[in-house]
Amino acid sequence: MSIFLSNMPEYAAMILFGIGLSNLMLAKNLIKKIIGLNIMDTSVFLFLAAKGYVDNTIAPIVTVSDLGHIDSALYTNPVPAGLVLTGIVVSVSVTAVLLSIVVRLNEEFHTLDIDEIIRILRKRDREDLQ
């Protein structure tokens, strides 16, 4: 029980990742799929942020008066912060591209349902063969 309480954010992150993954696989609506993907990404950021946290410390920004005698034990780990930053940038860019594909698909097929789109494409294929 104690380990469960102590690693709470990581547990939450993994459950969120599962929720996002199942949403991605099960949702038919493309926008919902994209939301699932975003939940997955966010859960990874939560995991990383939890990994960087250290009890009783402050953000990794020193003051001018500290220079020369900085004690690293007073600050949280700066590395995960950088990694989360990268992750956020990647997630934003990917979401933008996905949404633009959805806009184009909607213009082309007038639906957001991926199954429906595949059905229309198959039908076109069959008409092509005849």
């Binding site: 380990i3 102590s6 690693n7 954010p9 990581e10 939890a50 946290y53």
Partner: peptide, 11 residues
């Protein structure tokens, strides 16, 4: 797996 990871916040 998370249960086996190092606990949160230890220095």
């Amino acid at each position: 797996m998370v249960g086996e990871l190092p606990p949160l916040g230890r220095a």
